[in-house]
Write a protein that binds this DNA or RNA. Structure first.
Lengths: 201, 201
DNA sequence: CGTTGCATGTAAGGTGTTACATGATTAC
DNA sequence: GTAATCATGTAACACCTTACATGCAACG
């Protein structure tokens, strides 16, 4: 991967990168200059809820790669007192690359990696009480996450390009709400019909 | 990682393994002997919907590691005409390890990696029609997945330990249904309030 | 007669993580 | 004074995937 292939008329270049690289490029496609640190914060507030919670070190390496490929441009921005920032902006070919990826790549299947579900799935190995506690903690965490999503929605500037991020956060909110109610239902159904025997332990 | 640490009274040993290793161990904890191939099929029919869709090669390597750690035991099972199967069963210390992990490890946060959401989030880069088509395709895929989940639920044997897998599949069904309705709502909301200007492209 | 299913495994390499190094400023 | 925030980056390494190698049986 990470090789640049010229396809068809030699322009625009189609770049084979992982989806997460396009996510970083996408964050820069809203027009503002961002530092690696800015990207991390924005990703944590927004992208995290439906796509990715990147490690900060990973973002820095991704930005280096994207710069080598000419998809972003970085420059030092002196900060008084503080350490210099390195600010990045997307290039024309970067913008073309994300757009091409969006249109051409046939969207992979979504994936849900839910450790709580995995634990309940293995419920026969633990005491029923353990599951109840697990699900309660999960519901609490969901309430937290829902509050954060609402804060992110409130924080979105009302301009044009931001319509889509706002709409997706709204969609994400529905998903987490569904998780919340389904988890409560699950908890109740496990209590209502408790095991006759001891768990196989 | 993958080192065995003895904690406290030297028994049971606490094993530091990735969650996916415990998923494989968990599949074996239902008591039946399974081959790598069996595990792959079962994971694809069940685990995939809420946790993991492992590569078959990964499963084979994971089983090797688990055997070296003494958490599973494998033996050759001659098949007439066909290639030999290598069947695995969980050991007592394997069962102790999964159970300890379930009880002690404080469940990581779930993660949702949703390429469709990412694309809609970047909606300002594409034509509105592209998003409509994307969401339609997504809804179709969801209907497929829901049908598969229902098939898996129907295929679950009605015995004792299988209560939990059935309950989790039911939970997963709710999540996918929520995705379906939220995606339809999203699609409509994007059509109802179309962009005044051309997309910034 | 080609594809799909059954069945196992190795090799190579990309993706993404944690740990570490560094250092100023602000808040408790 | 100690923690948190701002800010960037390297090194090491674990995780997991794709590609490849192999081969029989059954279905259309």
């Amino acid at each position: 991967m990470a090789t640049v292939e010229h396809v068809g008329g030699d322009d625009p270049p189609l770049v084979a990168l992982p989806a997460t690289a396009y996510a970083v490029l996408g964050l820069l496609s809203f027009g503002r200059e961002l530092s690696g640190y800015d990207i991390k914060k924005w990703a944590d507030a927004s992208l995290r809820h439906f796509y990715w919670a990147p490690a900060i070190s990973h973002i820095y390496r991704e930005l280096q790669r994207l710069e080598q490929l000419g998809l972003v441009e970085g420059h030092e921005a002196p900060q008084d007192g503080l350490r210099n920032k390195r600010m990045y902006r997307i290039t024309a070919s970067g913008r073309a690359a994300v757009t091409a990826w969006l249109v051409e790549s046939p969207g992979e299947t979504p994936m849900l990696k839910h450790p709580v579900a995995l634990r309940v799935w293995l419920g026969h190995l633990v005491e029923p009480d353990d599951l109840t506690r697990l699900l309660s903690a999960h519901v609490d965490r969901l309430r937290d996450e829902l509050a954060q999503i609402e804060a992110s929605i409130a924080g979105v500037r009302g301009d044009d390009a931001m319509r889509y991020p706002a709409a997706v956060l709204q969609w994400a909110k529905s998903i987490y709400e569904a998780d919340l109610t389904a988890s409560q239902t699950l908890q109740q159904s496990l209590q209502r019909a408790p095991d006759a025997r001891r768990p196989t332990r």
